[in-house]
Amino acid sequence: MYSFDYHKPAVLDQALDLFKSADDPIFLAGGMTLIPTMKQRLAAPTDVIDLSGLDELRGIALSDRVLSIGALTTHNEVASHPLVAQHLPVLAQLAATIGDNQVRNRGTIGGSIANSDPAADYPAALIGLGGVVVTQSRSIAGDDFFLDLFETALHPCELITRIDFPLPDRAAYAKFRNQASGYAVVGALVADFQGKIRVGITGAGPCACRAIGIENELMQNLSIDVLDHVEVPDAGFNSDIHASAEYRAHLVKVLTKRALKQVLDQNS
């Protein structure tokens, strides 16, 4: 790891000021991607701004059928929090499949979403549930948030403070898990908001996206069989040692079916 200056601000404004005054700064949340990346010298920031002292980025709250999750909430906190279990169980189940236990004890929802790893799980939830990313200065619709591989709509000095998830009537997440890393080769989150179906896909392309074609088919006929006739083109999909683009396109369909089966098994 190259050398850098470490800062641990106590309030949000101080974190932003530190960021603005540094040459090549980076925010540190749980560090489960950032620190290994810095160890491999794939990232070499001049200043690391540790957010862990910012209590305003913590906490889980429910109001008006929206569940708000602070950016610094760890995956294991989401997986075990009673409000999540009661009102948005799909998110608790998803969080419990991320990485391994040690990673879930440190990694945060804000860090995962800000990183836009193409194989991360939370992006499927942000898209599939129609969530909203709240920063210090604005709200960004989940649909507009992920731009490309590790690229988001966040400005350089913009910090996620919380994620707001509207509560669906029913929802489920199905994932084809890479056995070594725990990352999603492909993951599909299917949610039903009073007949309006949303499908969020991660792992297939350079960043998480909606499966609009599948959503439209399902809104006309909410059944598993209808997916047999849907074509999922693999253009632009990832192709690597874990899976070809063609196989990922196949998985999109299979995992959407699996998630949909769980959705249909739930009482709306």
């Binding site: 560090g31 489960m32 620190i35 160890k39 540790d50 391994d100 236990n101 040690q102 440190r106």
Partner: peptide, 24 residues
């Protein structure tokens, strides 16, 4: 950060100590 041989408890929870800065 793959093998877990460096696992210790940080505030009561298991973490990989090779993926945590001392200053944290």
């Amino acid at each position: 950060s793959q093998c877990g041989a460096c696992t210790v408890h940080l505030d009561g929870r298991a973490v990989k100590s090779c993926a945590v800065l001392a200053l944290q």
